[in-house]
Design a binder for these strands. Structure first.
Lengths: 343, 343
DNA sequence: CATGATATCGATACCGGTATCGATACCAAA
DNA sequence: TTTGGTATCGATACCGGTATCGATATCATG
């Protein structure tokens, strides 16, 4: 029952969206001049810039990124491909990415692969179809098809969280196998020799697998082998870690150390020990991976490797932003961090 | 130095992207027919559908969602606005959303507000400019400006995780204040009377605040008040919970129960107690919120309210998908879940 | 055979921006 | 005064799809 009521038969009232043309009319210039002014693209007199900006402000112009991306051949979307969001680690990476994008005008689009290579391929393909400003994908081990896709695109691609392999374009992360090796060194330095391993989904989580390899390699170098290798397909969770630890310690009560594929599992191990009177770390040392915040609050001390997750996300964005800039100074293609072993 | 070298002056070799026109030519039909065939939009003979599909397959056509969204007035992007991704709860909601979108052709775009209303406004505004298929925003308490934006849009909007207030369009969640009240009831039923509260950022996290209100209301109904109310601005984390619990118990050693604004803080409380010989739950009952998976693996028992986070995400998507369908049967606008108190 | 309904198709006009290039104006140098 | 350069602007042609509507062909019916 607004004032529109009167115009029941006026034909030209859709006007659902304020467009650049409206701004141009309001400012008394052409669409092009308005476009240039709004983008600060130069070639516009100071007075007209002001006029256009004011007009846009007045009529509440927002701009249509779809149109602009279609025309400009590049969007301000950044595709982010992670294996899982339920995992805190990737959630924090996302957080870092979101933080890094703050103020850049870019928008993250995310896709979840659930550690499935086919799904990953589809997600990547789909994201590329958006002409994104960049792509951030987890890990270096994509399927051949996916890799080809990424190699042939003009879009800057940043692979994160890994360093062991050949990056397609840029790469921000750390060496997973080195991380595993370092942890092994640390545990050996603590005098541990009866060592077991507990992990999830190694066939899918190639990064955990690389850590395990590095870990075993170092053991071997010291004439040791894993006494137990409990590997499950159930999802990585604290409860899983607790259950597997119970099993492992039942089978091999002589273990004096357990390396887990991540902190969640290790925390589960800690809980099992606490609940069953196993002294940590005196009787058995537990070691995880990631350095999640809550680890240091646990009543018992467990070892872990602290990884710069937020920073990795932020850095990946920074690379894309820098590459997108016209005067793109050549960027470092490989940015390596080192996890810090904490015990 | 590829084979292109020879064609230094050939003019027509860009062809960077396979377009619908290419498919049309390859299939020997018009762009429109190709478009219709690929979208299964009808009005195309069976033989031509096959021809087009085959052609598209052969030349590797992918389709440009930008163009299609611009033309079709609606994209297949779904905006997701959450206060934080580092928080597992929202990470799991995102997981549910991603799961729900699996196979729908929709893509989630996410924005993080860090509990900042201005930021939220900007994120929402920005997302609306993409003509999204839908918007999923956390909570019912947006700023006035943001609310106006959401009310005036045609895009389906789903507010999640809360029920206490007036939804703009649809709403999937649970009553936070009722959840707080229920937990109070449960704790009182356990015979607890010396109750304290520990929480973070209540001025920003309105949902935690609602829980606290419901909690206090129930206490009051039973002639009780909180003995301690520790509220901090530091981020919600296990370590924060541990520190605040230490403080609270030092001030009021007579506490027999602590309600936390979430499970992370509560876990920190549990760790403090374990490390300091405070018996949980005999001496002091700890109660959190969310029902995170790891809670049940803790060596001590703590209470919590289990919330269907993944399901909420999934349901929100389902609403958007259903609304987007042409023959959109009228959907339930309010989908209420009930957290389950676990003790 | 005329007629109308139905199925199938394509030309054209957008969607809302941006790239490109030519036009115009103004000023300094020749 | 002529010439050349620079600053400023706008007409036009896209970007890659989709909506619309009219054209054509086919077929059952009167």
């Amino acid at each position: 029952m607004g004032p529109d009521k009167a115009g029941a038969q006026n034909i030209l009232v859709k006007k659902s969206r304020v467009t650049l043309a409206d701004v141009a009319v309001a400012a008394g210039v052409s669409k092009m001049t308005a476009s240039r002014a709004l983008r600060a693209a130069g070639d516009v007199s100071k007075s007209n810039v002001e006029r256009v900006l004011q007009a846009a402000q007045d009529i509440g112009y927002v701009g249509n990124p779809l149109a602009s991306s279609l025309s400009g051949q590049r969007s301000n979307l950044v595709g982010v491909v992670v294996p899982s969001v339920a995992n805190v680690v990737f959630a924090e990476v996302l957080g870092g990415i979101a933080e890094g994008m703050q103020g850049t005008g870019m928008q993250p689009v995310f896709g979840v692969t659930e550690y499935d290579l086919d799904r990953e391929y589809n997600v990547i393909r789909n994201m590329l179809s958006w002409n994104p400003a960049g792509l951030i994908v987890t890990g270096l081990d994509q399927s051949e098809d996916a890799r080809r896709l990424l190699e042939n695109t003009e879009v800057p691609v940043v692979q994160i969280m890994d360093l062991d392999g050949t990056p397609i374009d840029a790469c921000v992360g750390f060496s997973q196998s080195a991380a595993g090796a370092e942890m092994a060194d640390a545990l050996l330095a603590m005098g541990r020799r009866q060592i077991g391993y507990i992990g999830c989904d190694l066939n899918k989580d190639t990064r955990a697998n690389k850590r395990l390899e590095g870990f075993k390699r170092t053991l071997l170098k010291n004439g040791l082998e894993l006494l137990v290798e409990e590997i499950t397909e159930s999802p990585s969770a604290v409860s899983t870690g607790r259950a597997l630890t119970a099993r492992a310690l039942a089978n091999r009560p002589d273990l004096d150390c357990i390396y887990y594929s991540n902190d969640d599992l290790a925390a589960g191990g800690a809980f099992h020990c606490m609940a069953n009177g196993v002294i940590v770390p005196d009787t058995v040392v537990l070691a995880g991976f990631n350095g999640l915040d809550f680890i240091e609050s646990l009543p018992v001390k467990i070892a872990t490797s602290r990884t710069p997750r937020r920073k990795i996300g932020k850095t990946a964005v920074k690379y894309i932003v820098a590459t997108t800039k016209k005067n793109g100074a050549p960027q470092d293609k490989v940015i390596a961090y080192t996890p810090i072993v904490v015990d």
